[in-house]
Amino acid sequence: MLKRIHFIQLLLAAGIVFLTFAQAQAQVHTLTVTVAGMSCPFCAFGVEKRLKKVEGVGSITVSMKDGTAAMSARKGQSINFSQVPAAIRKAGFTPGTVRVVVSGTVKADDKQRLFLQFDSEHLPLAELKEPLREELLSRVMSGEPVEVRGIVHQEMDGTWTLLPESLSPVPK
C-alpha cells in the first residue's frame, strides 16, 4: 500500500515537472520588428522606451543600420507580440514585419486547420506550403513541442496568424 502511494506521488511530481517544463518552453522567445522611419540615434530611444513596456520583453537591441528592434523575452515569460506594432506607432514610427521564434504544440481542429498552441494562445498557421505543412502535420500526430520561426501578421479582422518559415525541435 505504502509503495503504491509513493508511486502515485512520484507520478504527480513527474507530471508537475513536465507541465512546468512545457509551460517554460511554450512561449515567444525572441522577436524582431522592422521600424520604418527610424533614422537617427535620438529617435531610437523613443522606440526602445515604448517596446520596454510590451509584456514579457526583457532586453532590446536596436540596429540603426538594419532599421530593426530585436527583443528577447524575460526568463520564463513570453513576449506579447500583439502589443509590438502599437508600441512602434506610439513612438511615432511605422511598424513593419514582425518575426518571432515561438515554441508550442502544433494542433489541428476538426477542419484540419493547423494552429500553434502556446501559453493560452491558439495562433493559426497560415500560408503553409509543402514540405512545411507535411512536417507540421507530423508534429500534430506526435504531439511533440516544436520551435517555429516565422512572421506574425494581423488580419483585417484583427486576428493574428503565424506564417511559419522553418521548424526545429525545441532546444533542451
Partner: peptide, 17 residues
C-alpha cells in the same frame, strides 16, 4: 528641440517621452 540647432524639427517625440 531635436536635430537642428536654431530651428524646430518635425521629428517625433514618442508618447510619454
Amino acid at each position: 528641440f531635436a536635430a537642428p540647432i536654431t530651428l524646430d524639427t518635425a521629428l517625433p517625440v514618442a508618447r510619454g517621452e
